[in-house]
Design a protein around this nucleic acid. Sequence first.
DNA 1: ATTTGCGTGC
Length: 937
Amino acid sequence: MDGLPPFHQTNVLLLKGPRTQNPELRSHFLSSRALGDTDTFTATPAYALRLSSSGVPAGVGGFNGVYSLASMKMIHAQMIKMPGKWSSDDHLAKSLIRHYVNLGDDRSAASVLLLGLARSNVRWNSFSEELKDFSQLPVRILEVFDDLHRKGMVFDARIFAVALRVCTYVLDLWLGVVIHACVIKRSLDSDAHVQRALMNFYERCWGIERANRVFNEMPKREDVVWNEAVKLNVKHEQWVRALELLREMQYSCMKVKGTTTVRVLQACGKLKALAQGKQIHAHVLRFGMESSVPICNVLISMYAKNGELELAGAVFNSMEDRNLTSWNSIISAYASFGFLDDAWNHFHKLKSSTIKPDIVTWNCLLSGHTLNGSYEDVLTILRMMQIYGIQPNSRSITCGLQSVIELGLLPHGKEIHNYVIRHDLDCDVYVGTSIVDMYAKRDCLDIARAVFNNLKSKNIFAWNSLISGYSFKGHLQDAENLVGQMEDAGIKPDIVTWNSMVSGYSMWGHTEKALDMIHQIKLSGLTPNVISWTALISGCSQNGKYRESLEYFIQMQEEGIKPNAVTISTVLQSCGGLSLLQKGKEIHCLSVKNGMTRDVCVATAIIDMYNKSGSWRSAHKVFKRIHKNSLASFNCMIMGFAMYGLGKEAISLFHEMCSIGITPDAITFTAILSACKNSGLVNEGWEFFDKMSRDYNVTPKIEHYSCMVDLLGRAGYLDETWDFIQKMPLKPDATIWGALLCSSRIHENIEYAEIAAKNLYELEPDNSANYVLMMNLYAMSNRWKDFDHVKELMNSAGLKNGQAWSWTQIDHTVHHFSAGQSTHPDCGEIYFELYQLISQIKKLGYVPDVSCVYQDIDDVEKEKVLLSHTEKLAITYGLMKRKGSAPIRVIKNSRICSDCHTVAKYISMLRKCEIIIKDGVRFHHLSKGNCSCKDCW
DNA sequence: ATTTGCGTGC
């Protein structure tokens, strides 16, 4: 038989019949040699039948009609007699199956599959095409199996294995278990085929855990089964289990397949199991597998995911052959760790080679830039891709959308949305969710909702994005309704859903409701986390409820939740808001202890806290200690100097900032103009105001104009101020008129004051300060009739003169002094001390400034009124209780009066102490008889 | 066999 075409091949030709269009094959079939074959196998009746009945040439085209079921069965019987000849050939089996099915005999087709597969090395998966066409085949196979089983046929392990494969295919959960029982009964469960089939059956039908259990219970497990177990565990992302299996395999010197090595290295990447990964790398080298490109590729990825970029690079450099995946792996490694230059270098090297970058290459670059926060570059790369003719896919688009969200570029976002629709990417879950998120974050709630409604699969991310959008905008009822709809849709709100709600309620001032939500989270079986608490704390802080925010901060820690950098920044803001220097210091310590001071936001918040708590020196110390100061920290420190009237320092810091390459923004200019304003630096102020739009392309906003009005007005240039207001391109708001009113009062210009006041009464009718300023001005000018008129106006608006108060902190207690109230327990002693101080400073030249009292009373009475000013009481108490040389810190809710200011200066000289007063607008740092404000406020 | 693996809350 040697040298002749094998029998089974000839049969394939026969069975395939008319489909054999290949002329060469036809001629082969018709050749004398082929005919010679038939002589050898005359025992094949159908073959003989066909040849004899049709004559050779005619028969070629007419197979279909010629074959009867009977002749098919005869051929089949012939084949079974010679199992060795066709056992490893699935083409023949496939032809046989097709013919049986075409002839309407599914059962025979099924038995060919069952028995044929069992006797051959043919893999079940290679029949998937046939199964697609004949969907009833698997069930028939199981019927045949069952039938033969009942008839008492003794199956071998292979038949059970095939039956299990079929059970897996049709997801017949129970038959598979029954077969498993039979297999155990017949002690066939140590067969490798059966074991693999069992693993696959349990994995598909009962889950990976059950599969692992069955694996553990197997008597003797061959290497292939171990490899299979690793494969399935990696598929189910059971990384730990996969690694355990491999460890045991290595321990018992089993053969680890290349594919298994690849899969386990993937596990090491995901798990960040560097030691394991290195060990497998050693294994790879020991068995000489380092020439395998896929193994090296996955090694690069594994090292990259473990942050070992040098090792990743070393593997890449050691490779003799590289494919596109190798390049993608190394580019991804560098890009994802922010080594963008290295990533681009490799990208260019790749481009100059013969291999072409693909979408994955570009996506690696995109996600690297996205992670690195280089959002503008992401958009540039997307444009480059289009130039190179690479169509961005869903993953590229998600990077693009994220960048657009961060940059706040809604038009670009809409452009991407358009692209998404045109390229049918909107069915991608990630893309869809990102688009919803983008519109929700850019205040386009209606569009967000429309996109959301069109999503094919609405996952929790999409729901949360939308809910967060509504909640953020203050549409809290809509947000609550959405949570209800989400539950109706069968999605349980998670901690993020709740946090969005906590944050919305808290941010919009409903802090009790937000706290209530925190309790609801507990009731729903979840635990409020640091973000939930921070949402509550931050909402309080933003709404000026600083005390509450600090209380919740304590409560959070009592519940065992550790604050993070955001929490710390937020509570530092609250401390600053209350000027609680002690508490602020405590939190500063806490952040140092937890290594959070490296966080830019925390560092900036610390600076801000010290500035607002009256300790610009501490702020400056922290500022100088930061290695890489950001725009925000510079802005903060410049603003700090501004608040203390340290104009020159502010200006020099501005120049320092520019010299190290940080570009000032609108906030910087607000800060620097405030600094000029608080130090009376008119020329410098003008210079900066001109410079901001000319040199830095920052268009002045209302707050910048307001600073200028304040600066010019207070310096006494009232006509210029008026002129400036007339010429400004923006409609003057309350801050502008307020600044004009203040300046007019200082310089006793009733004309401008009245214009300003008239506007203010309209713009902010409820602000009593405007009425009071006007009354003061009339009192100063002895225009008591006008005084009474404003008073009436104020009364009829239902307003009262705001309560003036001051406070100072001694140890951990805040001592509060309110105007007209003598409620402090040490009140008598304080007045006694104050009288003594006043008589002592009078000897140094102090003269009470009775012009500060706007009441129609005589000077002796006025002097008494001056003594009751709350800041004097607070300063006196501070002096009485102070320890060592610590400065006395007083916080006051309204502007300090000129008499108190003078008194404080004298006291600082008399008692050689520092006094720091925070009034309604700024700080006064008094020492040795001088004030940091240089008497300009 | 191998590479990108993304999206929600402070």
